[in-house]
Nucleic acid binder design. Sequence first.
DNA 1: CTGAAAGCGCTTACAG
DNA 2: CTGAAAGCGCTTACAG
Lengths: 337, 337
Amino acid sequence: MATGRDVAQLAGTSTAVVSYVFNNGPRNVSPATRERVLAAAAELNYRPNALARALSFGRTSTIGLIVPDIANPYFGELARALEDAAMERGELLLIGDSSLDPERERRHIAAFVERRVDSVVMVSLLDEPDFAAFEQASIPVIALHPIADDAPAASLTIDYELAARAAAAHLVAHDFDSIGLLNGPAHSVGAGQHRRGFLAAMAEAGRELRHDERNSGTSRADASAVSLRWLAEPERPRAITCATDEQAYGVLHAAYLLGLRVPQDLAVIGFDGTEHSEYAVPPLTTVRQPIRAIAARAIELVAEAAAEPADGADFTRVRELAGHELIVRASCGCAEG
Amino acid sequence: MATGRDVAQLAGTSTAVVSYVFNNGPRNVSPATRERVLAAAAELNYRPNALARALSFGRTSTIGLIVPDIANPYFGELARALEDAAMERGELLLIGDSSLDPERERRHIAAFVERRVDSVVMVSLLDEPDFAAFEQASIPVIALHPIADDAPAASLTIDYELAARAAAAHLVAHDFDSIGLLNGPAHSVGAGQHRRGFLAAMAEAGRELRHDERNSGTSRADASAVSLRWLAEPERPRAITCATDEQAYGVLHAAYLLGLRVPQDLAVIGFDGTEHSEYAVPPLTTVRQPIRAIAARAIELVAEAAAEPADGADFTRVRELAGHELIVRASCGCAEG
DNA sequence: CTGAAAGCGCTTACAG
DNA sequence: CTGAAAGCGCTTACAG
């Protein structure tokens, strides 16, 4: 592949000028030589080597993204929104998929540090992700979920407890007398938030109410298997609110297999609110996360932090909250009121 | 961030030795100095700079992936399978999402060339993707869809025509008398393959049969909108076979909105066969692509090509076919025979 | 406006 | 077994 030297030679100038032309600076180039350089570059199919550029420039113009599960459409949508926001700033988004495997997450962290990404957006599998490698490399990180107050990273997230409460309260308001929570893994931080929100709504009901919690992984397969057992019990819930849309799809599938009609026999609410939720059968009532707003703000924060390394300490104090929205559709049977 | 020089200084040795230690070669290092280097590296949190390494080594240990739409679970699953295969070979997979936008695809191609990925796996939005930039940079590319015979890339793909015929033939065999094809954009190469397979099955039916084709984008939203109009017509089909699972989900949604029961009033078949298809309501009959096998083979081919640049000409002649499999579930009403 | 040269952080023949 | 030095392909003060 042609190098800047080759171009300089063909254009009868120096590599410095080639660089000035391709970067529009930092020095001016006369129109005539600029023409010659461009012509030579075109003839040789010259593509600047981004590795060499980054090595001497000190920035890679690259943002790393780590997601737990790219096959989950929520993270697919999130990745797309982040890439849109990154591209607008001329940054490339590198996507690392942890495949629900903590070891994978660790490897992506290492790979991003070694490749010197300018900054990182992270959705960790772990309750206490290990930010140490990024911290040592002075790479700013923003987590899109709650993190410890003293964690060396920023965070931007909805208030899961409040959002979970809103979903459960919706079911309470519509007089269901037996409400279930299909939560994530029982001891995770995220499950604790959903549980607290759910229980708060139950406590506020002001009437007798049976309620119950079950736990499953985030996959449809797992959620379906758990729901199949749950819904076969004599005391099965009349309504179920879930910690993710994926789990809600599993509930819908289990209900189908058992011949339960949704919403007539079972009301269902999801959580996350991807575009796909509108096309579920029946369309899914869900709590929508403002994915595009979160993505745009996350990239903005992280790009600023990368540009002003001096403010690193301030950046790791950032704890921003985004709003959520309950979208009422057919799956909970309350769409008309 | 600490450099190899810092480590060498602290360990009282040279940068060459640091490199030998971290790469296990190409020269031996005495156990004593190796210890000292490792200790110094640990103390300084040394992480080799992959950019500098790649620049001098001439390889980035990186494979680029371009997909049309990462929010489509099929490509999510594909990306995951490819990353698994890449990691097994110690390569990092960089994922570029074209967001159904050809301009985006072009930018990813440019970014991959500039970053000097060792090779590329590509699912293009376009019928005739532009491989020129990769060819000029001598970067081997494998497309996971059919490409022109003289295209400067390898390809590995199922036989879409055969697979589409199998799906349609299944409906023919089960005596549906009015069968529709919900195809992709009418004039694309892919739509042509689905159409030929579909029409072949119709021709082989050996009886009177109404059939019809409609076209939609790959999104659920678009497929649902098109289906809504189609299924409201008096001559609506009794069965629909689709070019993608995403479109089939759109059909299921439209049927739901119109109060049509699947499969009693309308049989539906998808195409691609992601894990999610099993959890549709009702579970989706679909043509499964062997995603993991395709991913493993694609990475194998591309890694070999990158290792032996001499065989570049041979590599671009590779046109491999993978098998497909019809998975019969409830959505076509034929699950019991 | 332009060129010669140092430097980014590695790897690897070349000497010893 | 180890060190000094050249080179990978850029960018950018430093001179002119």
